[in-house]
Amino acid sequence: MIALHGIHQTYAGPQGPVHALRGIDLEVRAGEIFGVIGRSGAGKSSLVRTINLLNRPTQGRVLVNGQELTALNGAGLRAARRDIGMVFQHFNLLSSRTVYDNVALPLELAGATRGEIRARVLPLLELVGLQALADRYPAQVSGGQKQRVGIARALASRPRVLLSDEATSALDPETTRSILALLLQIQRELGLTVVLITHQMQVIKQVAQRLAVMEAGQIVEQGETLQVFHQPAHEVTQRLLDDVVPRELPAPVLARVRALLGDQPTPDARLLRLVFAGRGAEQPLLSDLVRRFGLDLNIVHGQIDEVQGHPFGTLAVLAHGQAPQREAALGHLRDAGVRVEEVACA
């Protein structure tokens, strides 16, 4: 549905050229929610704005639904953009227009009749749960409701692609969850392709089937969301994942481990961090380690979550056993799809 080939974006800055995007190649499949994540300044917003050519790339090609947007200008580009809706971080609503009129605006600009506008706007307000607020002004509704207006407005022209640029970053956690649930509902009911820009792995975890990680204008990692959570390949990705599943164990946990080991730690004890995902989280692996390999295990820390409907979690265990049995047990875990890391507890 979306293909970016060799995208570069360079801006003129006070200190010289700013290279916002550096050789981006990316494909987004039809009907998926694709997340793009990175810290501030990574190039996420520059990337998403090249998809609808709000920012025309300095170099490269942008294709949406098989049409090359970078080859279009004027009326052709305006027509192509009707297939691409966009939701913004700060809502961008017109304060002098009601909720209804804000949603109607794209249709008015396209020359739709009053009857056509009403037939389109009322179902959209029902879809986003705002039919009772149609006559209110933006100042009279909450932040989450403003974003729902923005989503309805973005859907007014019946787009096939929806771009979301940090649409939840100004919202509280509960409202964020409700907006993400709405985006999932819309994607499923309307069959949209959604590109979701965010700096929060919590957002990616809840809705994105696949993701790309950006740093300094480049994509440093991409793949299926569960796989990236389970086996991050780049340090930038791991730092972002620390917001959801921290690598470092809390100091009180390490203190408890040192207390369990005592003043004379045994060479047969190892503190292990086990990362489970998918099938590895559904097997009785710890009991296998005890029964088959004769290890003694103390669970000292852990958390279980879900990524795209699949279990995902980590456990920190203090494993006691002789080296051959311990190494065989770790091989068994890895064969079962569990990531194993040894943690220093000194």
Score class of each variant (00 low, 15 high):
residue 123 P to A: 14
residue 270 R to G: 07
residue 284 P to R: 03
residue 134 A to F: 07
residue 10 T to D: 05
residue 336 A to L: 11
residue 333 L to C: 08
residue 82 R to E: 05
residue 180 L to H: 10
residue 50 T to H: 11
residue 293 F to T: 06
residue 103 V to M: 08
residue 301 H to F: 12
residue 310 H to F: 04
residue 100 Y to P: 01
residue 90 H to I: 00
residue 164 S to T: 00
residue 182 L to Q: 01
residue 220 V to I: 05
residue 112 A to F: 15
residue 330 L to Y: 06
residue 129 G to I: 06
residue 175 T to C: 06
residue 29 R to L: 09
residue 344 A to G: 15
residue 336 A to H: 14
residue 119 A to H: 04
residue 135 D to W: 03
residue 234 H to K: 06
residue 40 S to F: 00
residue 273 R to Y: 01
residue 135 D to E: 15
residue 132 A to H: 15
residue 324 P to A: 09
residue 205 K to M: 02
residue 78 R to P: 05
residue 164 S to M: 13
residue 14 P to Y: 03
residue 250 P to Y: 09
residue 245 V to I: 15
residue 119 A to T: 15
residue 239 R to D: 06
residue 252 P to V: 04
residue 305 D to I: 00
residue 93 L to F: 00
residue 267 P to M: 10
residue 31 G to Q: 13
residue 28 V to A: 13
residue 103 V to Q: 12
residue 301 H to T: 07
residue 310 H to C: 12
residue 242 D to R: 14
residue 136 R to Q: 09
residue 222 Q to R: 08
residue 342 E to R: 14
residue 328 A to S: 12
residue 66 G to W: 07
residue 194 V to K: 15
residue 302 G to A: 04
residue 30 A to C: 02
residue 246 P to A: 01
residue 54 L to E: 00
residue 304 I to T: 13
residue 268 D to K: 11
residue 10 T to H: 05
residue 30 A to F: 11
residue 44 K to Q: 01
residue 70 T to G: 12
residue 275 V to R: 14
residue 9 Q to D: 00
residue 269 A to L: 02
residue 305 D to K: 08
residue 32 E to Y: 08
residue 159 P to C: 05
residue 111 G to T: 08
residue 97 R to S: 03
residue 319 A to F: 01
residue 195 V to N: 04
residue 240 L to Q: 02
residue 131 Q to D: 15
residue 34 F to M: 04
residue 164 S to A: 14
residue 16 G to D: 15
residue 286 L to G: 12
residue 108 E to Y: 14
residue 248 E to Y: 03
residue 46 S to N: 04
residue 49 R to N: 06
residue 120 R to W: 11
residue 138 P to D: 02
residue 156 A to T: 02
residue 13 G to L: 07
residue 187 Q to D: 10
residue 8 H to Y: 05
residue 194 V to P: 02
residue 268 D to W: 03
residue 333 L to Y: 04
residue 176 T to M: 02
residue 234 H to T: 03
residue 43 G to T: 09
residue 55 N to R: 07
residue 66 G to L: 11
residue 283 Q to A: 08
residue 29 R to D: 13
residue 116 E to H: 07
residue 299 I to A: 12
residue 289 L to T: 10
residue 9 Q to T: 13
residue 36 V to Y: 11
residue 210 R to H: 00
